[in-house]
Design a protein around this nucleic acid. Sequence first.
RNA 1: GCUCUCAUAGUUCAAUGGAUAGAAUGCGAGCUUGCGGAGCUUGCGAUGUAGGUUCGAUUCCUACUGAGAGCACCA
Length: 556
Amino acid sequence: MKDIKEIIKKGLEKAGVDTEGTLLSHPKDLKNGDFSFFVKDKAIDISALSFADLEKNKYIKSVAVVGQFINIYLSDTFFSELVEDILKSGADFGKNSTRDGERILFEYTNPNPFKEFHIGHLMSNTIGESFARITEWSGATVKRANYQGDVGLQVAKAIWGMMELSSEMPHTQEDLTKKSAFLGRAYVHGSSSYTDDESAKKEIDALNKTIYEKSDPKVVELYNWGRKVSLDHFEDIYAKLGTKFDYYFFESETAPRGLFIVEEFLAKNVFEKSDGAVVFKGEQYGLHTRVFVNSQGLPTYETKELGLSKMKFEKADFDLSVVVTANEQNEYYKVVLKALEFVDAEIANKTRHIGHGMLRFTSGKMSSRTGNIITGESLMVDVEKLVYEKIKDRELSDTEKKNIMSQVAVGAIKYSILRQSSGKDIIFDFEKSLSFEGDSGPYLQYAHARACSILRKAKEAGVSADFKNVDTAGELEKMLAKFADITERAEKEFAPQLIVTYLTELAGSFNSYYANTPIIAEAGDSSPYRVALTQAFKTVMQNGLWLLGIEAPEKM
RNA sequence: GCUCUCAUAGUUCAAUGGAUAGAAUGCGAGCUUGCGGAGCUUGCGAUGUAGGUUCGAUUCCUACUGAGAGCACCA
């Protein structure tokens, strides 16, 4: 079953079809073949051509001409060898080599220490992680970076809150959850006082300066405490979400670096002074002007970004650097990348920004639920509760229940984020978006768990897998055959939703197969093959879920 | 005001310029003797408007209508 596409292409050429530059594609409807080829030139009468040569190949069942289409149907031998290949390749099945040898850096998640991990961070992480995995799947060496704002007003707000609520501050021995909860309260207190209380605002502004100058050892101590609690807490969340970062960058480091760059290129007239600030005039490139250094001489986010770009390149030495942020920053990034072209054209050319959509709510339901802004964590906890309700009475150990609760909840959330193209906003409805039925993460996980269950039963019954095909290949085999091409296209287009759609259809095919076909029969000749096919489905589903960053529990 | 996104069943989303526009949810009708019903089978239902390019447009271009985001010292 070595490169079926090559075989078909050669066969078509032998029949007299020009395959140059035309796509050999999977028809949307399996009724139209496993592969189809569209002949643009109407002058060629393809119905007169003979595909006898191609049809002689053991992997080809038949070739049919319908209008301008040449539809190719694969043979049972092909599918039998496909199942064999899946079983033998296991976790590697479906990988491609389009990015072989490339070093690619992804920057995503980017939460701010001292503040909560909100839903936007959850989206960025989910999408970025999936991009990273899909790219690894294509052979690239992938590194993950997280860029965090450990300086700025939010820090002053949190520290001010910590001082105000100092009586509640947990001791060093207390666990992280308590410390982190305290930090959260401190930030909220500082943040609301900043807007509501004039004198608090003044204090916080003054504190901000103190933090920047590191002039008060007590404040420095609080800063270090809060920063560590916050970062440790984020680490717990990443573990739950399945991300492991290779690099961490902080604004406290990128700011001086960026400032240095802007000064250098101010002298070279890339930047200019305007109203006491240093700006980049984007208008001449069809963009807009942005401030890089404010009139107090402090660097803005734009300047820090320049410093970050340099630092990332020095650390990771990438061929491509992808930055994943919310799409409200699309225009901003265009300007920064334009400025970067003058500072370092090589890095600018190797950098790409991808904006993801924002989460919007149909109603105030979610916020009224928690009585607050929804954080990424509270969402995870809420969904975990729903999962627990479903599994609490099942025969599972407490550890299993705990793991399943988290895996299914994260799966449900990630699915609802990745199911649509990543640039578009998500209209979020708690009940609908996180239903466990139909189009959902748990639907995929359930089909996988069910396959695992069947395989366990098969083992008990003493039926071992054999890929020798005795049934006529059906929809399930045909779906499995598409996996590798789907993932390759998903990589090319940065489109995880293609994998989501595919897996949903695949799970449907398996569920349908399961409902209509006895897999473990007492004395059936078909059983070994059907068990092998179940195993193949399980493998592909598992690999596909991995690409989405979703766990595939064996029981649920 | 300028710039950038987006517009598909009642609702939430898919669809590499190609075949009868796919799912899910919703509403209707079914599925017990077999491996997990978070399931399966089946019916209803959609490309904002007006032009253009093309043999062919949900997809590309223009205008309009509607929604969202951004546009100087926040990130």
